[in-house]
């Protein structure tokens, strides 16, 4: 099982990878959706943590893409945006599990 982190902020991506690595997970970090797509698609055992405010291909598009995989992984969206903006972003789609920044270890562990 691998945790894929798609996060454009290098500080957030690195610290998240470090903490999850400390907890004992195997972690991959991608700075954007494009580089995530270049890799082997995540398996059903994997978890994808995606920042919703990505440059280029958006986090929402990434989540839609992942959801269409035959065996989709678990998705956790992280965001600094407002609840209202998130509801707008997803429109008719149900938003995935959502963590708002700043993230805490407890909230993360509870979801993993």
């Amino acid at each position: 099982m691998t945790i894929h982190i798609v996060e454009d902020d290098p500080g957030v991506g690195d610290s998240l990878a470090l903490l999850l690595g400390e907890i004992g997970h195997q972690v991959e970090v991608y700075p954007d959706a494009e580089s995530f797509f270049e890799h082997v698609p995540p398996g059903p055992q994997d978890t994808v943590i995606v920042d919703l405010g990505l440059p280029g291909v958006s986090g929402v598009q990434l989540i839609r893409w992942v959801a269409r995989l035959s065996t989709p992984p678990r998705v956790i969206a992280i965001t600094g945006q407002s609840r209202r903006a998130i509801t707008e972003l997803f429109g008719d789609d149900l938003p995935p599990v959502l963590l708002r920044k700043p993230l805490t270890e407890e909230a993360l562990i509870a979801l993993l």
């Binding site: 902020d9 500080g11 957030v12 690195d14 610290s15 998240l16 470090l18 903490l19 690595g21 400390e22 907890i23 600094g80 945006q81 920044k101 700043p102 993230l103 805490t104 270890e105």
Partner: peptide, 19 residues
């Protein structure tokens, strides 16, 4: 929004360090 990013990183780094 802008403060959230470094703050998130700080908290995660500290939590990793604590572990």
């Amino acid at each position: 929004h802008e403060l959230n990013q470094p703050l998130t990183a700080i908290m995660l780094y500290l939590q990793a360090a604590k572990r």
